[in-house]
Design a protein around this nucleic acid. Structure first.
Length: 455
RNA sequence: GUGGCUGUAGCUCAGUUGGUCAGAGCGUCGGAUUGUGGUUCCGAAGGUCGUGGGUUCGAGACCCAUCUGCCACCCCA
């Protein structure tokens, strides 16, 4: 057999121990908050039936779905003429009936549609799992990545929005990340598009607006005009829509009528602030969040002072499960961008001193002869609740201490011939370099004194 | 999916118009210190120059293909 060079599939990554600790820290924080707000865990299979996924993400999205080739003699199922003449994409539809999930929302919708009559509504679930996209990778964009979603379905109450904003506030406060939560409403955006004379071309209006961060307000205005929207309308809009802190009264005046989107935003902001005055929420009439499926509130979370793009986003949708034949289930959800949160925390130095130690103690024997004693001591330490690693015997002390140092284990317990005779061990503090000889029973009995991690 | 850029030791990178150009620093390993890490000193190992073709007397350097990473578009987390 030829040796092959080990390599990763394009756009995928290993998560080594250090990365896993960082990811776990973030995921546990989010999970704890989700559960505190009564969201329940859900996991769905990595693969779905292809027809469950296709047509849900638009033409562009369908192209990015990873298909799974049928098992068995799939070629037999296709007539030879089709096989030779069909386009690859058409052929793929004939020989693939499964695919890797593209996001967590559609599988969730499938789950809700399938279990409609046994779910107590409103149903609140969170889901943290990998998804796959056949995209071309770039920095911070992968073909396999985790999504971290919380949705509540079966309630159109705006109090759900308020609670989701509280979750955002609490998670980022716990992680110590300074963020701004931008909030807007699609109904309001609709009204603005109408004002700009976009008419039927709401999508065009939004796509251009979405580029604001990238191209700046002058270009947005230019593109709107190029698209043929009403110059007067755009002029009126652009007087305030790009302001740092637009307030809702301004908007109300600008629209010259009370608008449902404004009322919703007011409700949410008013109640959110009465519960959590410190919630870092800011109304932003330019926030659009993509094209499809959001129908009401939309949010997006950005980190203050770090350019990583958004670290979270979400919004309300009217009809989650309609495509699966179950109508009238509204929902609202949020999502956390794990990879970007991690990047932001690294840049802000928020992991310093936060990651767990591999173990508190390294027990090392000077020769094989002391290994039984060393193993016994390690066991006693573990039984006493001290996380302990036993270093294999027979190696030089130099090696074991270097190992402890390199892997940041703060204490070494050394046992050699002399110590074994006296029933003692040497306890070495790796940080200070100090070491003392203590009776073995004392080591266990006074573990809290000996293994203080405070410097 | 479209158009670009990139790839030399584990890591970060040198390598001049194709002709001793296969190198440096860091790291790793060994020794100084056969019962002591982090400092210091000495020494060693590691690369078919991403891969496969081609041009040439001769290619790490040129050409083609392919894979990877990255960038723009598209889209998005």
């Amino acid at each position: 057999m030829n040796k092959i060079k080990p390599t990763l599939v394009q756009g995928t990554r290993d998560y080594g121990p250090e990365m896993m600790h960082k990811r776990n820290l973030i995921i546990h924080t989010i999970k704890d908050v989700f559960e505190k707000y009564a969201f329940q865990p859900l996991e769905t299979p990595a693969m779905e039936r292809l027809d469950t996924l296709t047509g849900k993400y638009g033409e562009e999205g369908d192209r990015l779905i990873f298909r799974i080739l049928n098992s068995g003699d799939f070629k037999k199922e296709v007539d030879p003429q089709t096989w030779n003449q069909a386009e690859s994409s058409a052929l793929a539809a004939l020989i693939c009936e499964k695919a890797l999930r593209y996001d967590l929302t559609v599988p969730f919708a499938r789950y809700v549609a399938m279990n409609m009559y046994s779910l107590a509504l409103p149903f609140k679930r969170y889901q943290i799992q990998p998804v796959w996209r056949a995209d071309r990778p770039q920095k911070g964009r992968f073909r396999e990545f985790y999504q971290c979603d919380a949705d509540v379905v079966g309630s159109s109450s705006l109090w759900q929005e308020v609670e989701l904003l509280l979750i955002y506030t609490e998670v980022f406060q716990k992680l110590n990340i300074p963020v701004t939560i931008r909030i807007n409403n699609r109904k309001l955006l609709n009204a603005l598009a109408a004002k700009a004379g976009a008419g039927e071309r709401f999508a065009t209006f939004v796509i251009i607006l979405d580029k604001l961060d990238k191209i700046g307000k002058e270009e947005v205005i230019k593109e709107w005009l190029n698209a043929g929207f009403s110059p007067e309308g755009i002029d009126a809009l652009s007087r305030w829509i790009f302001d740092e802190n637009p307030n809702l009264e301004q908007v109300r005046e600008a629209l010259a009528r009370d608008e449902e989107g404004i009322q919703e935003l007011e409700f949410i902001l008013k109640h959110l602030r009465s519960i959590s005055a410190a919630a870092p929420v800011r109304f932003d009439p330019t926030l659009a969040r993509g094209l499809d499926y959001y129908t009401g509130t939309v949010f997006e979370v950005v980190v203050q002072g770090v350019e990583v793009g958004s670290v979270g986003g979400g919004g309300r949708y009217n009809d989650l499960t309609g495509i699966f034949g179950v109508d009238g289930i509204p929902g609202v959800g949020i999502s956390f961008g794990l990879d970007r949160i991690l990047i932001a925390m690294e840049e802000l130095g928020l992991f310093d001193g936060q990651l767990p130690l591999k173990s508190t103690v390294l027990v090392t024997a000077l020769s094989e002869d002391q290994m039984p004693d060393a193993a016994k001591i390690a066991t006693q330490l573990r039984n006493a609740g001290v996380s302990t690693e036993l270093y294999p015997g027979g190696a030089r002390l130099k090696k074991s201490l270097a190992y402890a140092h390199k892997t940041s284990i703060p204490f070494a317990v050394i046992i050699g011939e002399n110590e074994a005779k006296k029933h003692t061990v040497l306890l070495k503090n790796m940080h200070s370099g100090d070491q003392i000889e203590v009776q073995t029973e004392q080591l266990i009995a006074r573990k809290d004194d000996f293994f203080q991690l405070k410097k």
